[in-house]
Nucleic acid binder design. Structure first.
Length: 607
DNA sequence: GCGGATCAC
DNA sequence: TATGGTGATCCGC
């Protein structure tokens, strides 16, 4: 089905070692979505020539070339290591992997009906709803880089992720539309309302993809999964005018693969029988599995693993060549195992919040500071929206050569204000400027990790306070908190907040004492929070100015903040209509917690 | 823990 | 002329 997605034949590796084999580079330049639907009838040879010629000589091209060379070297190392291992006795490794496979086999669960739903060329489809005349012409959404294109455009070799000027070379009549994210979000909402009828606990994987567990739905309505999905797809098409494709299988991994089989506007089911699944996987190109990208594909290809069936003969080598996690991942691919637990994204704990932007090459220091200020302000907004502070701040830059660098720092306390974000990021930027003479950037970004929730205390119908932090499992016993009055809850929560922060500070100061200082002292003192470039810190709540004692001031701010958030929550709650949160439950919560998790499982957060 | 790299969409 | 933004995870050090 995906015969077009062939790696270039690698006849002589000595040639590619010197970087003279452009086959792999051209393949690389084709972009990551080569295996996507709609490419079957395309002359990939011709397309890759056009892309190659359009890119040749650019900084982007040079960077890709460099990466390609590095990968080729890495693969040679892998092959050398493989040859060395093969001279040894691998039988203990083979035995160990067989034990692992047997263990995995025991966890196989074929009782669930998991489906993956994927909107066809979503952004393009939504645009076509507003302007039907676009249906008959090749069209793409996105400015510098395409995010989506319709199937007519794909006939020309145009793909998502492609630079628009390259797409124009492939298809001069291509119509380009700017993104209208709100439009897509609102359409996605319509679709999700329908999905919820089939599984109220469905999992949004992205704006246009979702996983559902329709086991209960099928039981209750006495329909088989094919029929249920057929009905659901018709309902979506009728009500929202968007066509979707779907995969039906015993687990999420298989369902995801299956949803690509009959795209667009189709569905495919992998029967829930062990032998059928094994046969299905045996012929499946590893690249079609979520988590195997262009790099891993080439690495696997180099040791003769093209389809999942090829994993088995190599099982004794995989852990040593690619690491334990990769081995476990491949073992599950071979067996066709995946998770059966589907849950709302809200259940997932966010790990980071960040922002970044690309711009014309900038070397000017003042201009770069302006970009950094912009990033700090954007990040402040995003942190406010998501209600987090960050204990770690990460600066990301992309040099004019397309090389990406990151630097991180742990401020003395969790940060969330633009002023602080800027103040702590600046020394990192300054150090980079010092280390890289004549540094020119084309991208700059900031990200917070090690998040601390700043979610307001939720005063429910009974006037009782309870933390609404996501279920990290680390929060206090909420039942206990519900037995106390508002005033007391106020004090308790405030104390808890301060205590949390003090624990954090304690930990941070201990770590700081042991670890090396990452920033240059003179830079820190000239550009840090106490810098003369910036105002003195003040408490954002009561505007008290920072005094000599850092620690005491920090504690004061945290206490002030926690009081404030509770106060706001109390005021807000008195105006709101009291409501008991609907208890969403599947009728049969019979999800044995799946067989193994995908190590490269994506966790995307929309809204 | 840090920084680079890979991956998904 | 010109190649994105957000978030997650893994590995080597």
């Amino acid at each position: 089905m995906e015969s077009s997605g062939q790696l270039p034949a690698d006849d002589q590796s000595s040639e590619s070692a010197r970087g003279e084999d452009y086959g792999t580079l051209k393949y690389q330049l084709l972009g990551p979505s080569l295996t996507k639907a709609g490419q079957d009838a395309v002359d990939q040879q011709k397309v890759s020539e056009i892309i190659y010629n359009a890119s040749k000589g650019s900084k982007f091209f040079n960077h890709e070339q460099e990466r390609d060379r590095n990968l080729t070297v890495k693969i040679e190392r892998i092959l050398k290591e493989k040859a060395r291992l093969e001279r040894l006795d691998l039988s203990p490794d083979v035995r160990r992997t067989d034990e692992y496979l047997a263990e995995l086999e025991l966890s196989r669960d074929l009782s669930q009906h998991v489906i993956h739903v994927d909107c066809d060329a979503f952004f393009a489809a939504v645009e076509e709803l507003d302007r039907p005349e676009l249906k008959t012409v090749p069209m793409a959404v996105g400015k510098g880089v395409l995010t989506t294109c319709n199937y007519l455009a794909r006939k020309f070799g145009v793909r998502s992720g492609m630079a628009s000027f390259v797409a124009k070379k492939l298809c001069p009549q291509l119509v380009l539309l700017p993104q209208n994210y709100e439009k897509y979000t609102s359409k996605a909402k319509e679709i999700r309302a329908i999905l919820a009828q089939y599984d109220p606990l469905f999992e949004s994987a992205s704006i246009d993809e979702a996983y559902l567990n329709i086991t209960s739905f099928c039981e209750e309505n006495h329909v088989d999964p094919d029929e249920a999905v057929q009905r659901m797809r018709e309902q979506i098409l009728e009500n929202t005018k968007v066509s979707v494709s779907a995969g039906i299988a015993a687990n999420a991994k298989l369902a995801k693969i299956a949803s690509n089989k009959n795209k667009p506007n189709g569905q495919f089911r992998v029967p829930s029988e062990r032998d059928t699944i094994m046969m299905f996987m045996r012929e499946l190109p590893v690249r079609n599995v979520n988590g195997v990208g262009r790099v891993f594909e080439r690495e696997l290809d180099s040791i003769g693993v093209k389809v999942c069936g090829d994993i088995y003969p190599q099982r004794g080598l995989l852990a040593k060549l690619f690491g334990e996690k990769a081995f476990q991942f491949l073992a599950q691919c071979y067996l066709g195992l995946g998770r059966t637990k589907i849950e709302p994204v809200e259940n997932y704990e966010r790990k980071s919040v960040g922002t970044e932007a690309t711009f014309h090459e900038i070397g000017d220091k003042e201009e770069l500071r302006a970009k950094l200020r912009w990033a700090a302000e954007e990040l402040e907004k995003d942190l406010a929206r998501t209600q987090f502070k960050g204990r770690t701040l990460v600066l990301k830059v992309k040099l004019h050569t397309f090389e990406v660098l990151t630097r991180q720092t742990a401020p003395p306390r969790a940060v969330f204000q633009a002023k602080d974000l800027y103040a702590f990021a600046l020394p990192m930027l300054v150090k980079l400027e010092k280390d890289i003479p004549g540094m020119k950037l084309r991208l700059l970004g900031l990200r917070c990790t090690n998040l601390v929730s700043t979610k307001k205390v939720d005063i429910n119908f009974f006037g009782l306070a309870a933390q609404t932090k996501p279920s990290t499992g680390s929060t206090v016993d909420e039942k206990a908190e519900c037995e106390i009055g508002t005033e007391e809850a106020f004090e308790t929560a405030a104390r808890q907040e301060v205590q949390d922060e003090m624990n954090d500070l304690e930990q941070l100061s201990q770590e700081a004492a042991g670890g090396p200082d990452t920033s240059e002292p003179e830079i820190t003192s000239s550009t840090g929070p106490n810098s003369s470039h910036l105002e003195q810190w003040e408490c954002p709540i009561c505007a008290r100015l920072q005094d000599a004692d850092d620690r005491a001031f920090n504690d004061h701010v945290d206490f002030c903040l926690s009081r404030q958030t509770i106060r706001e929550a109390v005021q807000g709650a008195s105006q709101d209509v009291p409501s008991i949160p609907p208890t969403q439950k599947r009728k049969t919560p019979s999800h044995p917690s799946g067989s193994g998790t995908d190590p490269r499982q994506k966790r995307l957060f929309f809204r």
